[in-house]
Amino acid sequence: MATYLRVPMATSMPTSSSTSASSKRRNIRTFCSVNSRCKAKIPMPPINPKDSFLSKLASVATSSPETLLNRPVNSDTPPFLDIFDSPKLMASPAQVERSVSYNEHRPRRPPPDLPSLLLHGRIVYIGMPLVPAVTELVIAELMYLQWMDPKEPIFIYINSTGTTRDDGETVAMETEGFAIYDAMMQLKNEIHTVAVGAATGHACLILAAGTKGKRFMMPHAKAMIQQPRVPSSGLMPASDVIIRAEEVLTNRDTLVKLLAKHTENPVETVATVMRRPFYMDSIKAKEFGVIDKILWRGQEKVMADVAAPEDWDKTAGIKVVDGF
């Protein structure tokens, strides 16, 4: 009786010393080869047709489950990655190769600002009063464009009230406008100036200082020249106020001489019209010599086709009776 009970126990319950991890995996593999229903007991990962990793993992689990059961104990690779032919790990964000083109998914760098895009087309846009920050940017752009190509023209688009605001309040020193003017005079490039909107005070000087024959104005733009304004004196002593007033008069004389030079008008004429704000539309600015052409599509052809007043009279059958 003891022997009969001892034999089954010896064969069905092996001791822990004679059992190892390799024998357990061998027994499971042997059992799975005999029993075909063993495959259903292996946990199957969800199959996602859009996920290549899970699809590959599911196909391996279905075809050869022992590949998933016999995993290396100490492996340097992440789990289940060695079943691929050439496994590749995603790089860290700092190592990801950035896209060449701009898109919302993988930007190469922040998109450039608008002045930089215009600068690429050799366009300098002055759209604010001539405060120090604007002057610094404009002069830097002019120097950069000359360094890039000293033979290609530079296009300056102007919509500025100069060193004052539209209500006449001074926002910057007159030297800001003179700084841009001097930088333009030092360039080797042709400078095409275009007035869009307003060109007031020193902005009008910049407009007139373009290359002769390359100064343009939009049909409904306005130009205006005026005397420089005395900055707010505040609690300044009387002697300092006099010094500032003398400096403003000096800047006025300089502005008059430069405008007379570029408009080809006498200094006395410019000084006379500058006693009060002198507004000019595109036609009057062309007559005064501030610009050379008005940028109106087809205007030259229209004006060339217009008949003289005498021809209009002859066509209408009007005869001059007396010599009025």
Rank of each mutant, 00 (worst) to 15 (best):
P78M: 09
M90H: 12
P79A: 08
E97S: 15
K41Y: 12
P65R: 01
P45L: 13
S63A: 14
F31R: 07
V96R: 15
M44A: 12
C38H: 00
I42A: 02
Y102A: 11
S86N: 11
L89V: 07
N27R: 13
T62Q: 10
V100K: 13
F80L: 15
P87A: 03
M90S: 10
I47V: 15
I47A: 11
N70I: 10
S36F: 06
K24A: 13
T77G: 01
S52R: 12
P107V: 09
P87N: 04
L89P: 01
R25A: 09
D85S: 10
F31G: 11
L69M: 15
P49I: 04
E104Y: 10
P93W: 03
P93N: 04
R29N: 05
S36D: 08
P72W: 10
M44I: 04
V73F: 14
S22M: 05
S52V: 09
T67E: 06
D51M: 14
A91E: 07
S22R: 13
A91N: 03
Y102C: 06
D51P: 01
S64H: 08
P65G: 04
S63L: 05
P93T: 03
C38G: 08
S99A: 15
R106S: 12
A58F: 09
C38F: 02
N103A: 06
R37W: 04
T30I: 04
M44C: 09
S86K: 12
L57V: 01
L57Q: 00
N35H: 08
L81T: 15
V60R: 02
D76A: 10
E97V: 14
E66T: 15
K88F: 08
K41I: 15
R25I: 14
S59R: 11
P79I: 02
P79L: 08
C38V: 00
N74K: 10
A61P: 00
P49E: 13
N27M: 09
A40H: 01
I42N: 01
S23Q: 09
N74W: 13
F53N: 10
R37A: 13
